[in-house]
Design a protein around this nucleic acid. Sequence first.
DNA 1: ACAGACGTTGACGTCGCGTCAAGGTCAAGC
DNA 2: GCTTGACCTTGACGCGACGTCAACGTCTGT
Lengths: 260, 260
Amino acid sequence: MRIGEVAALVGITTRAVRHYHHQGLLSEPPRRPNGYRVYGLRDAVELARIRRLTELGLALEEVRDVLADDRGRDLHEVLVELDADLARQERAIQERRSRLAVLLEKASGADLAPDDVVSPGLVGLFGAMSTSAAELPEPALAAWDRELLALMDTAATPEDRERLFAAMRPMAADPDAVARSYELYRRLGELTEASPDDPRIPSLAAEFTDHIPADLLALLGPDLPGASTDPLGAAFLADLPSAQAEVVRTTLRLLTERLS
Amino acid sequence: MRIGEVAALVGITTRAVRHYHHQGLLSEPPRRPNGYRVYGLRDAVELARIRRLTELGLALEEVRDVLADDRGRDLHEVLVELDADLARQERAIQERRSRLAVLLEKASGADLAPDDVVSPGLVGLFGAMSTSAAELPEPALAAWDRELLALMDTAATPEDRERLFAAMRPMAADPDAVARSYELYRRLGELTEASPDDPRIPSLAAEFTDHIPADLLALLGPDLPGASTDPLGAAFLADLPSAQAEVVRTTLRLLTERLS
DNA sequence: ACAGACGTTGACGTCGCGTCAAGGTCAAGC
DNA sequence: GCTTGACCTTGACGCGACGTCAACGTCTGT
């Protein structure tokens, strides 16, 4: 047989056959005087073996090792390992699909924005908030805060997220609390052009401080953004107009005091 | 923030961040006088968005399109398509795992050779044969035939295989039939050194012909290897010593006559 | 002053082939 | 004999999402 025939017989391309030669998986067969390779049935059987193993997901190098060692022990180990690997992949795909399912379900009712691609827990949190705030316009700064939450969603460990979202859920589900949050954000928004010593700053900071529930504060406590050492806090403050940054700084100071 | 800080914040490598810049997923931020990139919170949020989408399995190009078009319709289509793709992958993995499971189960009892990596149907067929022939030594040519079967396993369509294996199973499960097969193979093996006009050839061919059940012959009928046109038959005969090839040729001729 | 941890650009490696490019070979039909 | 078209040959680049040097400049702490 010539290369195209043997390739068609085992259902692969001629390119793949030559590739296997090149990688040392299959020894080069004899040639006709014109240079054409001549394959026998043994080659076809060997190719079929290679193909079955690669279709299982073995890398070509592993296939080569298996065919070289040529006895079962080694193959068995490889297959067990492969099965574990496939199991991992399967779980990963299922995880992704479940996240997708949440998104697609949500999208069937409402419109879908790119920043909505977050963990199911956070989707639930946002859903609760938007229900609570059904009639209220959302202040720009609150939307920004939501983006920050989405950012945290990728940064923290799953357990941390769970606890954080659990602590926030009561607030998100309470229409009064959400309305109060929006009111505070609105007043913060009014300070865009204010000077850093505006008289409204201390009182607004105090009200923000009072608005944070004790359990949520306790949870946040250990790593309250010091705004001095960590780059996240620094970038956060650097992005805000100075009066607003002052409110945040004061609020953080008050919260730290409340913790001690 | 510098690049390492923003990368750590969203849980990716600096190389990935620069890659995203290079691919146009994220615009280049301003630089310090020393050339260092300076990132703000918006960049971190954007990176987190990119990361969430890529983790779902979107290609960078798709992510770029989604972020560019920036409204839900397009994203929704992409996600539906993605879900379908993931579903395909999941099925493929499950298929592979189920084949692996058959192999691993079999391997726990007996030893495992590379050529045993075949379809479940064929594994069952071989299992039935080895049970039927528990006490008999397997002739070398029968082993060779088994390899050919494994070869067909990859070549034919699943339905063809199913029917073929179904037709062969009664023979494989019948100890008398298997013993008879082995006997014929043994006598074929004795012809390795014989001349092409050895007197044992016609009778052996006749016995082989009689040994094939009618239903199996009917199934094989349409594409009985003519040994003239198709390369598989030619290679098969070319690989055999001349006397044995003569037996095969005669048997094929007799079978063809029996069909007409 | 110097070590060590950061940053910069640029380029090559990964893996299993697909896909040209630039030819040579062969059987069939004119 | 000539052409056409299907096959064969080797060699080299492309893909996708970065990892990993290399060769170098910059900042920070002791």
